[in-house]
Nucleic acid binder design. Structure first.
Lengths: 195, 195
DNA sequence: CGAATGACAGATTTCAAAATCTGTCAGCAC
DNA sequence: GTGCTGACAGATTTTGAAATCTGTCATTCG
């Protein structure tokens, strides 16, 4: 009946489009099927439930964020403290940009992430791992104070949650936000540098 | 008609009671008037609007939190870093206790605070001032690294927002929360101590 | 006279009926 | 057979009419 084959990927893309237009409360699988020109029964052939479909959307979105972010983090930037500063700065900038360019869509993904918290915590796990790698390096080279890298990485992420946790997105527009994030990062870097 | 005089204070107390019972969405000034055995017109003699009444409630509540907290902070605790640790720990504990003992009421006050953000930021200003005083002392005595006390105080508050900002109240029940707050506080204290 | 009342207009909320949606599945089309 | 459709039951959402609420004020009460 249709040229294209209709696979899970297409359905996820269509769902993303409907979410973009109607927001998380009002997107129905019937809307998704309509956009694809297909009956809603066909969507249920590929996903067992609406929840599973929404989970696939947020998973794919966070995977893309992860890839963007890993690319930004790859820069060498000599001393570990500076590499860490670069990583955190890139992380904040990436999120702030997304939140600013389309606040409603960002809010939509935030709802999906809250709905599927295991996917969200996997994402947090990835962020911790990125930080942990730099911290472990720095401790190895004697640039950073000794300690358990995993614990330190988690503390760093917790201490900066105001600047990366989507819960705080509403505050990211306020004038002093950039300066405040820099002060917090400076505080943290002083805290982990070897004495 | 009634023994008691009916002043603003009584009305605020009655409003608090109605908020406790019905939550922020469903409390009406008619309910408040009913609880007081008075017509709603009388309430409007003391407050120009429902918003002003709600503001008075959150203001009084935050004033009480402030007083409790100032009492807890008054302990000497020798070195400035330890005084600061005590202050932060007391702050977290006070909020966590309130959130745990009655989560719905806590959520209610959170709604009121969001509604009247100028009152909330005055409260934040108070918290900053408490921290600033200790930091300024510590810098003066050479125990803490040099810097602008106000800026440092604000950075400390921002770095710990995950543990005191009501936005994060839902996360305060998770098992590792206490340990994580201790790690963040340790990180911060290392960051501000003189080298 | 000062304090409280209750009727009122317009705004907001509630509630039940109607519409729509989710998830299943027997059957149609290729 | 494989992939899709559309009818269906029960759950959820929308809708608009009725009820309630906010804020004002002329009037009453002591």
């Amino acid at each position: 009946m249709r040229g294209e084959p209709l696979d899970a990927e297409m359905i996820v893309s269509a769902t993303e489009e409907v979410l973009r237009r109607h927001g998380p409360e009002k997107t129905t699988v019937l809307d998704v099927a309509r956009l694809l020109g297909v009956s809603h029964g066909s969507v249920y052939r590929h996903f067992p439930s609406k929840a599973a479909l929404r989970e696939a959307v947020i998973r794919r979105w966070l995977d893309r964020v992860r890839d963007d972010f890993a690319a930004a983090a790859r820069g060498p930037g000599r001393p570990p403290a500076e590499r860490l500063r670069g990583l955190l700065t890139a992380m904040f900038a990436a999120k702030w940009a997304k939140a600013k360019e389309d606040p409603e869509l960002f809010a939509t993904f935030r709802v999906l992430a809250a709905e599927h918290s295991s996917v969200a915590s996997a994402h947090v796990g990835f962020l911790v791992e990125q930080i942990r790698a730099i911290v472990a390096d720095g401790i190895g080279s004697g640039d950073l104070a000794a300690g358990e890298p995993e614990v330190i990485a988690r503390a760093v992420l917790n201490a900066t949650s105001r600047f990366h946790d989507p819960l705080h997105a509403a505050e990211w527009n306020t004038p002093g936000a950039v300066a405040e994030s820099e002060h917090v990062v400076a505080l943290i870097l002083d805290g982990i540098r070897a004495r």
